Amino acid sequence: MQIEQIELFHIRMPLNFNFKTSQASIKWRETIVIKAMDELQNVGYGEVVSFNEPFYTNETLASSKKILINKYIKAVIRKDMDHPFDIHKDLDSSCPMAMSGLENALVDLYARRNKLSIMKLVFNEETNDEIYAGIVLGDLDIKMLLKQIDDYQKEGYTRFKMKIKPADGFEKLKAIRKIYPSIQLLVDANRSYNFNQINEIKKLDKFNLICIEEPLNSKDFLEHQKLQKEIITPICLDESIQTIKDLKSAIAANAFKVLNIKIGRVGGIYYAKQMIDLCRESNIKYWVGSMVESGISKILHVQLASLKDTSIPGDLSSSKRYFKKDIIKPEIIAQNGIIKVPKGYGLGVEIDEVTLSEYTIDYIKIGGE
């Protein structure tokens, strides 16, 4: 396979609501869509899901774009490639979200070229035909949280993730559990607690949470280990785990019990598979998150969440929740809380080129005639 042309679409998609966490608030989602074409005119798509500001990881959309143009794409354009994972042999992952976007486009292209689904190509194991959807609730006031839970329960959703912070996390959970004592509930603190607030975190045990995601604003896995010994609620790690080395260190430290896997965060599906294999070997539960992303990246997470041993319904919901119009056809639909996993080649969906063009604020083509 030879990559003849790569196009970068820097897009700006208006969100249906202002999405708030303890670290940031976003009303527009900017990402970079990568379209790769081979010598036979096959195409594949990937998405770079870094944010404009470094509140999630240090990588920003600007740094992703820069390394793609100046380094990553130059390493693959017009080069013979036996397999898309070959890029990981030759390139560093200093910008994992940029690397993932490029890798995902090449994997989609290669799978379509060989008339395979991505899951058949990468995992070659039995998967589910449908998955349970899950809702992420931003850092909202109690009244709005309760309303959204009620609304989304009526749509069939059964699992809710709530963004919390020390100032009001306990009170919000108390209010939710009073009205909804048995819903599947987990929380994401986005590293907003420090270790000295351990007693505040311990108070959350009473709410029967599936897990607490990223509780500590610390990179010290020994602090996580000490916290996990003190609380009943399983600790889930997300942005603390960006590399295989991070994961091995956290496992060795007994720092957590659950891993949230996001393909962009870890540098591609190549590394996501390695992490899943390591979780399976180490008796760590794993599940699939999302990045407030377009359907190009989210449908790949839907595919990944179809693995039979994922432990929690993912952060995966209908396209319409976030965007008036997505850039894939068909869009992602959660019906009665269930998402059907597409069965076509590659990502299993097509790209709405017209809508992609409407959202594009900058365009770069590398290679081609």
Score class of each variant (00 low, 15 high):
R159G: 04
R159A: 12
F160T: 00
F160W: 07
K161V: 00
M162Y: 12
K163H: 07
K165T: 03
K165L: 06
K165R: 15
K165F: 04
P166D: 05
P166S: 01
P166L: 01
A167V: 13
A167M: 09
D168W: 12
D168K: 14
D168C: 11
D168G: 14
F170P: 08
F170S: 07
F170G: 04
E171T: 14
E171G: 09
K172M: 02
L173M: 04
L173Y: 02
L173V: 03
K174A: 13
K174E: 11
K174V: 04
A175Y: 08
A175S: 13
A175R: 10
A175P: 03
I176W: 06
I176C: 04
I176Q: 01
I176D: 05
R177N: 10
R177I: 08
R177E: 08
R177C: 06
R177S: 03
I179K: 15
I179P: 05
I179L: 13
Y180K: 13
P181A: 07
P181T: 07
P181S: 11
S182I: 14
I183G: 09
I183N: 04
I183T: 08
I183R: 09
I183W: 09
L185V: 06
L185H: 09
L186M: 13
L186W: 01
L186K: 11
V187T: 08
V187E: 01
V187Q: 02
D188A: 02
A189R: 11
A189E: 04
A189I: 04
N190L: 08
N190A: 12
N190C: 05
R191T: 15
R191S: 15
R191W: 09
N194K: 12
N194P: 03
N194W: 12
N194R: 09
F195Y: 14
F195V: 05
N196Q: 13
N196W: 06
Q197D: 06
I198T: 10
E200R: 14
E200Q: 15
E200N: 13
I201Y: 06
I201V: 12
I201S: 04
I201L: 08
K202Q: 12
K202N: 02
K202V: 06
K202H: 06
K203I: 01
K203H: 08
L204E: 00
D205V: 09
D205L: 02
N208F: 07
L209K: 04
L209P: 03
L209Y: 00
I210S: 12
I210H: 01
C211S: 10
C211T: 11
C211R: 03
C211D: 11
I212A: 02
E213C: 05
P215F: 05
L216S: 05
L216Y: 00
N217M: 05
S218A: 11
S218R: 06
K219L: 11
K219W: 10
K219Q: 15
K219E: 15
K219D: 14
K219T: 15
D220K: 00
D220P: 02
D220S: 01
D220V: 00
D220C: 00
F221M: 05
L222P: 01
L222C: 10
E223Q: 13
E223S: 02
E223W: 01
E223F: 03
H224R: 04
H224Q: 08
H224P: 01
Q225E: 14
Q225N: 15
K226V: 06
K226M: 15
L227S: 06
L227W: 00
Q228N: 10
Q228A: 11
Q228W: 12
